[in-house]
Amino acid sequence: MSNSLNHKQQHNLKQTLELKPNSPLWKRVPTKDEYGNYLGDFMIMIPRLKAASSDHQKQTLDKLNAVLHRYQEVVVFADLNLKMNLLWISVRPVKGVILDIVSAIIESVPEAKLISDRPPR
């Protein structure tokens, strides 16, 4: 697999980072990449972002955008639901990448929290 994204992939990433009203998430989230590989996904909560000033919201979005662009080789989809303060990210199946992205987001936006489920006992 090539280390660089083709023009279409770069364009698709840019489109998913725009702010615009969309259809329900379950209709838009990809489950497989262009090669048929299943994608991983995770959610991050950013408490009180909706209630924050527009300047703070923009600064937070700029920080998130910078992190996602650092990982543009593996980030396939990103959606920020400001109403729910939730960021959904879908990634290519690369070992350890979710932890790397989550760590980078929390470093840039300290109030961000990974939403996870308890592992089965």
Rank of each mutant, 00 (worst) to 15 (best):
V75F: 00
G36T: 10
I101W: 06
Q10R: 14
L80H: 01
F77G: 07
N6Q: 07
K20P: 00
Q15W: 08
L25V: 13
D55E: 05
L80C: 05
Q57D: 07
N22M: 14
A112K: 02
M1Y: 05
H7Y: 12
P110E: 09
F42G: 00
K32T: 13
V74E: 02
F42N: 01
K58P: 03
P119I: 11
I98C: 05
L17A: 05
R48Q: 11
K32N: 07
V75L: 01
D41V: 02
L39E: 04
E34V: 03
K50H: 07
V67Y: 09
H69A: 08
I101Q: 04
L99H: 14
I115K: 06
H69D: 15
N12F: 00
N37S: 08
G96Q: 07
G40M: 14
E111G: 04
L82N: 01
V109K: 09
N65V: 01
F42P: 01
S108A: 15
D100V: 08
S116A: 07
I101Y: 03
S2Y: 06
V67D: 05
P119N: 13
R92S: 06
L68M: 14
Y35V: 05
V67H: 01
V94D: 02
H11R: 10
A51P: 01
E73A: 15
K83N: 11
D55Y: 03
S103L: 15
Y35H: 14
E34L: 03
R28K: 10
K113A: 07
K14Q: 15
N12P: 00
N85H: 08
N85T: 07
N37W: 08
V94I: 09
G96P: 11
R121P: 15
D33V: 01
S90L: 00
R48W: 13
R28A: 14
N22E: 13
S53V: 02
N6W: 07
K27G: 11
E18H: 04
W26Y: 13
A66N: 13
K27P: 03
N85S: 08
K113S: 13
Y35F: 12
S2I: 07
V109M: 11
L13C: 12
Q59C: 08
D100H: 15
D100A: 14
P120S: 08
M45C: 11
D33T: 02
M1A: 12
T31N: 12
M43N: 02
Q57P: 02
E73L: 08
S2G: 06
R70L: 11
M43R: 06
T31S: 15
I44L: 06
L25G: 06
S90G: 11
S4Y: 12
I44Y: 00
P24K: 08
S108R: 12
N3T: 06
W88K: 01
I101V: 13
Y38F: 12
E107T: 15
S116N: 10
R28I: 14
V109W: 04
Q72G: 08
L64T: 02
V75D: 07
G36W: 04
L99Q: 13
